[in-house]
């Protein structure tokens, strides 16, 4: 799919919502974002997946017009962030990685203040704040101060804050970090709802299930570079095959697998074999080397992620 050249039915060119070409960001000698290309189309949920330090936040900040790029091309709504930051910022909503709600105000106060920054008239803002608090299930907390909110409530409030200006493009940097499953599901549900209303959503995450569940397309980043791009399922079938056999590791098993001439990966006390016919491999293993523990399962995005970015621990 050539995502850079979408056209409508009459064949006129529709520019992508975000277009990055050779985008770069350096901090001194560190290339935080190193020559990346991607295009986000209207109405899709586009994910940036990567370990800590991959350059996801840096990329989001350049899109948000709060960090100037070092080199390359970047267009948001077909505008240059260096030239039209205020026009772009008017049309986007941001959930930052770091929770930065204003502790001097209540939930409602935070949203009203934010509305003012967008020059939204007070009476319109009041209605919208009420709607948004309902949307993120925080209506009862409207006059509670920020310190008294749980982590999940804060993230939900930030999502509401990001929607105050009815953004066409929503940028979420690790929206569900540190949340319990209930809060994560609520946020996922709301994001799907927003997408169905025509919003374009860009999000970063290192939760693989989140990416697999939400994203129409995603890129996997590491060390400032994009390693792969595709739909979650295409990435899984391309890099991890259909299924995975996990076998408990010992010398006999290793020797046996080497003899079978199939690609495998050792991790800790397990050996992983990805294959399209896992059951056949499992049957052979059982016959030849009688492993103590073995299981077969469908491949996931996590397998792709670990394969592409390695198992080395990140900070």
């Amino acid at each position: 799919m050539d995502s850079n050249n979408y056209s409508n039915k009459r064949g006129t060119y529709i520019p992508p919502v975000i277009l990055a070409e050779g985008l770069k960001k350096s901090y001194g000698n560190i290339a935080a974002v190193d020559n990346i290309n991607f295009a986000v189309q209207k109405g899709e949920i586009f994910g940036f997946l990567g370990p800590n330090g991959a350059g996801k936040t840096t990329t989001m900040k350049m899109i948000q017009c709060i960090s100037p790029r070092s080199a390359g091309g970047l267009r948001v709504f077909d505008l240059d962030p260096d030239e039209y930051p205020d026009i772009i910022k008017h049309r986007i909503g941001v959930v930052p990685q770091e929770t930065n709600l204003d502790p001097d105000f209540t939930c409602e106060g935070n949203l009203l203040m934010y509305a003012r920054y967008f020059d939204i008239p007070k009476d319109i803002a009041k209605d919208r704040v009420k709607e948004l608090l309902t949307f993120v299930s925080l209506s009862e907390k409207h006059d509670v101060s920020i310190e008294k909110l749980s982590g999940g409530m804060k993230r939900r409030l930030i999502l509401a804050r990001a929607l105050i200006n009815k953004p066409e493009l929503l940028i979420l940097d690790e929206p569900t970090i540190g949340l319990d499953p209930q809060a994560r599901h609520l946020i996922w549900e709301r994001l799907k709802l927003l997408q169905s209303q025509g919003n374009t959503i860009v999000l970063t995450t290192h939760y693989l299930d989140e990416a697999a569940r939400l994203c129409d397309r995603l890129v996997i980043m590491d060390n400032g570079k994009i390693l792969e791009e595709g739909t979650p399922s295409s990435l899984v079938s391309k890099h991890a095959g259909g299924e995975i056999v996990e076998v408990e590791k010992n010398n006999d098993v290793l020797e046996c697998i080497r003899g079978m001439n199939v690609p495998f990966e050792e991790t800790g006390d397990t050996v992983l074999i990805s294959a399209s016919d896992a059951h056949e491999i499992a049957r052979q293993l059982l016959e030849k080397c009688r492993p103590k523990k073995m299981l077969t399962r469908p491949a996931t995005l996590e397998d792709v992620f670990l394969k592409l970015t390695g198992r080395r621990l990140r900070d």
Partner: peptide, 14 residues
Amino acid sequence: YQKSFDAIIATPLS
């Protein structure tokens, strides 16, 4: 500490 400036520059303010 409050990261208020970060929050505000995500809006049309520079």
